[in-house]
Structures are given as C-alpha cells and as structure tokens.
C-alpha cells in the first residue's frame, strides 16, 4: 500500500513555479531517491510530502497515522538553547536511557549522550539526527541530502548505514541526493526532478535516460548505461517523458 502519494501537485513561491504537476508515490519498504540540480524543487517536494508546505493545486495523501522519521537537510541548532544529545533524542517522544544508548551505538555515534548537541561534529550530528528519526520506529525515513558537508568515506559510510537499517527494520526510505552514484545503486527507483518529473525508473534505466544526461551531463555514461533509450529530446518543460519506464514497485 502506498505510504505517501501525490497527484498533480503544483507549488509556487511568489511568482516562481517550483513544482509543476508532480505525481509521486512511495510504498512500504521501497527505497526511492529523488535527484535533480540545485533549485529543482527537491527539498520543496520533500516538505510538501511531509505536510510542511501545502501545494497550490493537486493532492497529497499520507497513510493515516503514518510514522515518519525525518532527517532534514540542515538542522540549524540554535545555540541559545542548551540541549544534550539525549534530551534531543527524547523530543517529542520520551525514550529510556537504554533505548537511546542502543540506538546511538546502532548508528555509530556511541557515547555522545551527555554532549551538547551544538558541539557534536558534522558527521556524528547527522547520525544523531538519524538516531532520533529511528527511535520513533518509522514506517518511512525521509532524508533530505543527509550527507551534505561529509567527506567521501563519510558519505559512503552513511549510505551503507541507511541500507543496513532498512534491511533490519524494513522501513521505506525516501531520499534526496546529489551523490548520484552512491545513492542510485541502492535505490529501487530513482526520480529525476527539475520542477517536474523528467524521468523515473530503476537506477539503470534512469542513468541511461537522455533526460538524466541532459540534467547531469554525460560523465556517468558507460558506468551504468546498460541499455539506451531512443528518445532524443532533452529534458524540457513539456513533460514529454514523464513516467517513462517506470519499473518501480
């Protein structure tokens, strides 16, 4: 069954169209990755799916009572608020010291419980935010560019962790990413976004799609391009290729 679905969603900031006529669906246990250049509306789509931002038109449906674990792009921690890691992990739902300790170990950030959240390093910080999301026993994890500011081993480590966790608890994962290669191989389905959905499908299909290359250049061709499309057009705003080759589950 679908956890979150969007139908014909359009969203504007002022006069600027950020999302146009986007259809989206994610089902239990699926890993879906949204990729797109800067300003393509990725974060806006995430925030609309979360319910933070209401679309101007279209419809977003969340499964009633859906437990969402959210890891935002940047969590600007207000240094004015004193906050230990353990207290942060108990917001808003209280967890036992034992559950917190176990979860921090699980995400590879053991022993930081009593540290001030604002003083935790970048890589550990994202793991702490992930731990908070996981403590809520989520049906879906939503990660908005979770590896921003991490180095290459840090990025690989973080996605490896996400894959492990998904295998363990079977939650759906929806993520936004720039780190195309790392992310795509682990995804069931990749959505290429640029204000609207340019192309969508399994990683191999998307990496071979001309729309994908139009957006990201040809650097990845050859590594994942297992088969080619005959579509010659570039990804533009006429929706010529929306939904092609949708092999998602």
């Amino acid at each position: 069954m679908s956890l979150i679905s969007a139908k014909g969603v359009s969203l504007t900031y002022g006069a600027q169209h950020v999302l146009r006529d986007v259809d989206f669906e994610i089902r239990a246990g699926e890993i879906v990755t949204v990729i797109g250049p800067n300003g393509s509306g990725k974060s806006t789509l995430m925030r609309a799916l979360l319910g933070v931002k209401a679309p101007q038109s279209g419809e977003i449906t969340r499964k009633p009572g859906l437990r969402i674990g959210y890891v935002p792009q940047r969590l600007a921690i207000e240094t004015a608020m004193p906050l230990t890691v353990a207290r942060f992990l108990s917001l808003p739902v209280k967890h036992t010291a034992n559950a917190i300790k176990t979860m921090l170990e699980r995400v590879g950030a053991q022993g930081v419980e009593t540290r001030q959240l604002a003083s935790v390093s970048g890589g550990q910080f994202q793991r702490v935010v992930l731990a908070r999301a996981l403590l809520g026993n989520p049906e879906i994890l939503i990660l908005d560019e979770p590896t921003q500011g991490l180095d290459q081993p840090g990025i690989a480590g973080f996605y490896g962790l996400i894959e492990d966790i998904r295998r363990d608890i079977g939650c759906a994962v929806l993520m936004v990413s720039h780190d195309l290669h790392v992310v795509m191989s682990a995804s069931d389905r990749v959505i290429c976004l640029n204000g609207h959905i340019c192309c969508e499908g399994t990683p191999t299909v998307v990496s071979a799609a001309p729309e994908y290359h139009a957006l990201f250049g040809h650097g990845t061709r050859g590594t994942m391009a297992l088969y080619q499309h005959e579509h010659g057009e570039q990804c533009d705003h006429n929706h010529a290729h929306e939904g092609i080759e949708n092999h998602g589950q």
Partner: peptide
C-alpha cells in the same frame, strides 16, 4: 512544553512528528 521545544528547534521536525 515538549511540542513548544521541538517547534522551536525545527518547525519541519515538529511537523514530521505530527505537531
């Protein structure tokens, strides 16, 4: 108190937690 704290920390996190 608790909903206020999480809303103060990050509005999006609060919404994701149903607040």
């Amino acid at each position: 108190w608790v909903p206020l704290l999480i809303s103060t920390l990050n509005a999006d996190l609060a919404v994701a937690s149903g607040i």
